[in-house]
Amino acid sequence: MKKGVLLVNLGSPDSPNPKDVKKYLGEFLMDERVIDIPLVARTALVKGIILNTRPKQSAAAYKKIWWEEGSPLIVLSERLQGKIQKQVDVPVALAMRYGSITIKKGLQELVDKGVEEVLLFPLYPQFAMATTETILVLAEELRKEHFPSLKIESVPAFYNKSDYIEVLSNSIEHHLKGKNYEYLLFSYHGVPERHIKKSDVTKSHCKIDGSCCATPSKAHEFCYRHQCLEVTRLVAEKLKLKEGSYSTSFQSRLGFDPWLQPYTDRTIERLGKQGVKNMAIVTPAFVSDCLETLEEIAMEGQEIFHEMGGKDFTTIPCLNDDDAFVDLLSKWIKDWIGTSIKV
């Protein structure tokens, strides 16, 4: 069977104009795995409130980070795809979960090239309902409806793979070289606490009580919180970070329900108030820099830190199309091509 690869990232509006941002936000926020409340309530919230207030604000944020080539997330994902394609001997397509570069188009591109077996590669190190799961569910729906003879395998969360941790750690170390920082904050995209409990295959382990993520359980295979904390632990171990010089936080909360804590903005504020003058921040839930890293962290986070008396605020780039990251993903793909065993 001829093989091919479909890389899938989050997505982006077609432009930073409010009309395009509204369209994108509508698709994103109406996903039942993003805002997981009944359809009637979700429709009232998203179409009745959020889409009447948020698009202009989000469009202004997108304009701050938009590149001449387009959306940073799209451009960086395309660069990653191009570099990987040069290293592997099968077609590599790119798709986004939301927006105009759809998963359906990506699968069709591969089928048109004669591909019969696809490695679906969600570009998320950690598993979450609102990221990996929604990609897998939609891909299977599309396969059944439009590509019934297509075989699809997926890459599971790779947050704890030693070669990934090494690449991530080396990148952090490289970008901090020569920097006189006192504190390193690992900031991950936030999710509502209920998502963690919904993803608990044991239906009893996840209590978000400060101990469950450190207690071995099969629930960890799909526990976003555990996987984030584990990345921090493994990188800190690899870089020999001193206890008390780093921590984990969660960004980008929405609404009034409890989300994973501590919150990134409040953590940055607290560090500034405590007298930390030089801090660095890394965002390992993302492989590509995007609105959440370039505007929310690099701009808003820095502003908060300076307001609290901080001096130097270093934002570490995502892995993006870093050559070592490209080599790693290409190796995993080659392993799959040669063995037909899941990566």
Rank of each mutant, 00 (worst) to 15 (best):
D327T: 11
E109N: 15
E292P: 03
R33L: 11
V118S: 05
P317L: 13
L142V: 09
K203D: 02
K2P: 10
Q81C: 15
I103E: 00
D200C: 12
Q261Y: 03
A139N: 05
F313Q: 04
G99S: 13
V92T: 04
R233E: 11
A60M: 05
N180P: 01
K86P: 02
L119W: 01
L120H: 11
E300P: 01
G178L: 01
A95T: 03
M1G: 11
S15Q: 11
I101Y: 13
S330E: 07
L94I: 14
F222Y: 13
S169Y: 09
S58P: 00
S12R: 01
S15K: 10
I268C: 11
S288V: 06
L119D: 00
T283A: 09
P317Y: 08
G338M: 06
K3T: 03
K277A: 03
V167D: 06
G178S: 04
I50C: 02
N320C: 10
Q227E: 14
K198P: 01
L294T: 08
M30K: 13
P258R: 14
P91V: 11
S340H: 08
G11Y: 07
K273Y: 05
P38Q: 13
H175Q: 14
L329H: 05
N52S: 04
N180M: 09
R143C: 02
K203L: 08
V287W: 03
S199K: 12
H189Q: 08
P192R: 04
L110Y: 09
F256H: 09
M96H: 00
Q274F: 00
Q57V: 13
S187A: 14
S15E: 13
E292Q: 09
A324V: 01
E68M: 08
K113V: 08
A236W: 03
F305H: 08
K218D: 09
P262L: 04
C223Q: 02
H226E: 10
S199E: 09
I337L: 07
